[in-house]
């Protein structure tokens, strides 16, 4: 089983430690992990702003670079959701072979659904509040959406429960949007920042020391507000917790 590590553009430039933790975690679980060097961006930023056709060359590039891998695994739910949901439309001319989207996984769902480890080599003696990001919840099904009448389920919680010493919390409005939303964050910055402030307050009220989730983009937005307001909480990508002993 060959895994191609999909490191989205902003994780590459801003949060290489998230990529590193992903590599370590997958490797420690005995998987064959590789990083196709020429990858750049999946195209989601343009598409969400209304320029999906600009994402087409990037989609073609992604498909080519990851052609030989059994699984494409990335530490960013919204990028994975975009690849899975929009690539079939963007790449329709390549109809004969299965679309890259079909074998692309967000790292938590990959661990939870495919690798299914019984234990994780992780210890994190801290209080964490789970950040259920919109595309992770409502597009990938990482947890049960609060709007639906379905039994509670959270793949992030299931994985975090395997971490030694951790205490897990969730905000009251457990999957309300934090206000990042790509270009939305700049174009509607007043509402975006207000949403972020409200979200952080909700996380803070749990008593957690860390906000953790499967999307560094949400966390980047929240951390910007935390830094500005000097709030007593930090953001940390979930793989950094799951790989905390590596």
């Amino acid at each position: 089983m060959k895994i191609g590590l999909f490191i989205p553009c902003y994780i590459n430039a801003l949060y290489p430690e998230v990529g590193q933790a992903s590599y370590r975690l997958l490797t420690a679980l005995g998987l064959d992990v590789d990083y196709p060097l020429e990858q750049t961006c999946c195209g989601q930023p343009m598409a969400n702003a209304g320029f999906e056709h600009d994402a087409k060359p990037l989609a073609e590039r992604m498909e080519h670079l990851f052609e030989q891998y059994d699984y494409v695994v990335g530490p960013s739910a919204s990028c994975v959701a975009f690849v899975r949901e929009s690539y079939p439309g963007l790449l329709e001319h390549q109809g004969e072979k299965p679309c890259i989207g079909e074998r692309t996984y967000e790292i938590c769902e990959f661990l939870h659904d495919v690798v299914r480890p019984t234990t994780l080599p992780a210890r994190f003696p801290h209080k964490v509040s789970i950040h259920n990001s919109c595309h992770g919840v409502r597009k990938l099904g990482l947890s049960s959406p609060s709007e639906l009448n379905v039994p509670y389920m959270s793949k992030l919680r299931d994985l975090l429960e395997k971490v030694e010493g951790i205490e897990i919390f969730e905000p009251t409005r457990r999957d309300e949007c934090c206000g990042f939303g790509g270009m939305f964050a700049a174009e509607e910055n007043a509402v975006s920042i207000r949403m972020g402030r409200d979200k952080i307050r909700d996380h803070l009220s749990t008593g957690a020391e860390y906000i953790t989730g499967a999307d560094s983009s949400c966390l980047m937005h929240l951390q910007g507000i935390i830094d500005h307001d000097r709030l007593p909480i930090k953001t940390l990508h979930i793989v950094q917790i799951l790989a905390s002993n590596l």
Binding site: I7, I11, N12, A13, L14, Y15, P16, E17, G19, Q20, Y35, L37, A185, A186, E187, N189, A190, S192, I193, R194, G196, M220, H221, Q223, G224, I225, D227, H228, D229
Partner: peptide, 18 residues
């Protein structure tokens, strides 16, 4: 527009993952 009413810019890492 990122800063708006108070949101600091993220910092680039000294070296990219690549």
């Amino acid at each position: 527009p990122w800063y708006g009413s108070g949101r600091e810019m993220p910092r680039f890492a000294p070296r990219t993952f690549r």
